[in-house]
């Protein structure tokens, strides 16, 4: 059985509707990619335009080991 890993997840703007109930303590498999995380949450990949891991820009291929704070943003252009 794989080790438990938990992240804090915040989905911004239009992605808010994909927020799981356990977003403050969301379980992931250690080594999972942001792409897999997004797929698991049923977020269309093209909507996940901007990803931050612990306040630093990440990528879809970035891997998670537990303990991270993840922020995911759609494109926003209103003025």
């Amino acid at each position: 059985m794989s080790k438990k890993a938990f992240i804090t997840l915040k989905l911004f703007a239009t992605l808010g509707k994909f927020t799981p109930a356990s977003a403050d303590n969301y379980r992931v498999e250690p080594g999972t990619s942001v792409r897999d995380l997004i797929a698991g949450l049923k977020i269309p990949e093209e909507k996940a335009k901007l990803i931050f891991i612990d306040g630093i820009k990440g990528e879809l291929d970035s891997t998670l080991n537990g303990g991270e704070r993840i922020g995911i943003f759609p494109p926003v252009g209103g003025g």
Binding site: A13, T14, P75, V76, G77, G78
Partner: peptide, 25 residues
Amino acid sequence: LIYGDPENAPNKGAETSLGALSYCV
């Protein structure tokens, strides 16, 4: 760094469905 490469970026974003609130703007 925010929107990706300009050639692949959409013209509009989440504001199309969310609008914009005065106090945030």
